[in-house]
């Protein structure tokens, strides 16, 4: 038969479970920037760069498409692109702070050249942050 100690153990485990459950569901959590940008070309990995070192990244493709992504002051933006609509330039910068308020979120996207630059964040289920 069960002993007192067993009930204690079961009780402790259940308490732990309840704690984790509450943490998962009510914990007011934010997304957190990982301070890195990942670049993909046509969906394939191109490179990953820390935002704490300023630099220009040339994303040159065999088909002649070229984008220059600038990293400075912990942010990144598209400096130049030889695409026809230049929308990526107009998308402005992504910083560790502004991404929840951008309609493109963590992304700068050059559709004609198929280039995507994405701020890497830890997804923790923020109650505001849109997914798209």
């Amino acid at each position: 038969m069960f002993k007192k100690k067993d009930f204690l153990l079961i009780g402790l485990v259940l308490l732990l479970a309840l704690g984790i459950f509450l943490f998962q569901y009510t914990g007011a959590k934010d997304t957190r920037s990982l301070n890195r940008v990942r670049v993909t070309v046509n969906g394939a990995f191109f490179g990953e760069y820390p935002l704490d070192k300023p630099r220009d990244i040339s994303i040159l493709q065999d088909n002649g498409c070229e984008n220059i992504l600038r990293i400075e002051n912990g942010s990144f933006y598209m400096l130049r692109a030889n695409c026809h609509n230049q929308l990526c330039i107009g998308q402005g910068e992504v910083t560790n702070k502004n991404y929840p308020l951008r309609s493109l979120g963590t992304h700068i996207l050059c559709l004609p050249n198929r280039v995507d630059a994405e701020l890497l964040i830890e997804n923790t289920g923020d109650s505001f942050m849109p997914d798209i």
Binding site: Y25, G105, G125, P130, D131
Partner: peptide, 13 residues
């Protein structure tokens, strides 16, 4: 979404 949220968030530009 399986991260504790109950809903997806869709932004209107």
């Amino acid at each position: 979404p399986l991260d504790g949220r109950k809903k997806w968030g869709v932004s209107v530009q």
